[in-house]
Amino acid sequence: MPEEVVHALLLSLRVALLATAVAAVSGVACARLLARARFPGKEAVEAVLLLPLVLPPTVVGFGLLLLLGQNGPVGWLVPGGLLFTWSAAVIAAAVAAFPLVYQNARAAFAQVDPDQENAARTLGAGELLVFFTVTLPLAWPGILAGIVLAFARALGEFGATLMVAGNIPGKTQTVPMAIYFAVEAGDYRTALPLVAIVLLFSFTVIFGLHRWSGRHIARYTGQRRG
C-alpha cells in the first residue's frame, strides 16, 4: 500500500478519535449544564449548539474558515492560524460530531430518575460525586450511543474538513478525501481497498460497542421478580 494511503488511514483514525474525545467531553458538559440552567435565551443557545447537525457542511466549513484563518480570532492566538493543518481537521470533525453527543446526552440525562440523585445527596454525596456515581452511569447507555454516532460522523467528515484542512497528501489528507480524489482520478485500485477498510473498521467498532453496551445494560435490567 502506498505510503500516503497508510498516512491517510492513520490520520483519519487520529482525527476521529481526538474529535470524538473533544465532542464527548464538551457535549456531555453542555448537556448537563443546560439541562439544569434557567436563563433567558436558553432555547436560542440550544438551537445554536444543534446547528452543525442541520447546516450544509460547506456552511460550517466557511464559518470555521473565518474563525481559524489568519485574521480570525484563532489566528490571533496561534500565529499564522490553523488552516490547512491536521488540527483544523480535528476541529471540523469535532464541530460536526458535537451535536450528536449533545443531543443524546441531553435525552439520557432527562431520563435519569431525580429521586436516585436525591437519594445520593441524602447519603452524604456532594454534587460532583452524585454526577459521577449516579447521574453519569445511569445516563451512560444513551451517552455512549451518542459517542458512537459522533465517532462515525467524525470519521466520515468531508465537506468542512476539505474547506479548512484541504487535501494535502501525507499532511492533511484523510481517508474520505483520499477516496474522493482517487475515484475522481479514476484510480479505483487505491479507492477500493480504502473503502473496504473503512467499511470493515466502522462495522467492527459500532457492532462491538453495541454488543458491549447491550451486555452492560442487561447486567442490571434483568427480569424483576415478584
Binding site: D113, D115, Q116, N118, A119, A120, T122, G126, P137, L138
Partner: peptide, 20 residues
C-alpha cells in the same frame, strides 16, 4: 445541604441505584 444533614430518607419508590 442535604449531604450534611445526617438524614436517612426512604423514598416512596425506594430510589435504589439501579446500576449498583
Amino acid at each position: 445541604p442535604a449531604a450534611r444533614r445526617r438524614v436517612g430518607f426512604v423514598f416512596q419508590a425506594y430510589a435504589l441505584f439501579e446500576h449498583l
